[in-house]
Simulated assay, not measured.
Amino acid sequence: MTKPGPLSLNTATVKEQWSLQQCIEGCARHGITGISPWRDKLAEYTTAKAAKHIREVGLTVTGLCRGGMFPAADAAGRQAAIEDNKRAIDDAAALNAQCLVLVVGGMPSGSRDLAGARSQVQDGIAAVLEHARAANVPLAIEPLHPMYAADRACVNTVAQALDICDALGSGPNDRHLGVAVDVYHVWWDPTLAAQIRRANKRVLAFHVCDWLVPTTDLLLDRGMMGDGVIDIPSIRAMVEGVGYDGFCEVEIMSTGNWWKKDADAVLKTCIERHATVV
Rank of each mutant, 00 (worst) to 15 (best):
A193C: 04
N173C: 12
V181R: 06
A180L: 15
A193W: 04
I164Y: 05
S170K: 00
L162M: 01
G178I: 00
R175A: 12
A161H: 05
R175D: 14
A161L: 09
L162R: 06
V183A: 08
Y184S: 13
V158D: 13
L192S: 10
V158T: 12
V155T: 12
L168F: 01
D163H: 06
W187G: 11
L192M: 01
A159T: 11
Y184K: 15
G178Q: 07
D174K: 09
L168V: 02
G171V: 05
V179H: 04
A159F: 11
V181G: 03
W188S: 14
D174S: 06
D189E: 08
V183T: 13
W188A: 14
L177F: 09
L168I: 00
H185W: 05
Y184N: 14
L168P: 06
H176K: 15
Y184W: 11
D174Q: 02
D174P: 03
W187I: 08
W187C: 04
Q160M: 13
Y184A: 14
N173P: 11
Y184T: 13
V158Q: 10
V186G: 03
T157A: 08
N156Y: 00
P172F: 03
D163W: 02
G169P: 03
C165D: 02
L168E: 02
T157V: 03
G171Y: 07
L192F: 03
A159D: 15
I164C: 02
C165L: 00
G178T: 06
L177R: 05
T191P: 13
L168N: 09
N173K: 14
D163E: 14
A180Q: 12
L192A: 09
A159S: 15
A193T: 11
G169K: 07
D182N: 12
A159H: 12
V183M: 10
I164G: 08
A193I: 05
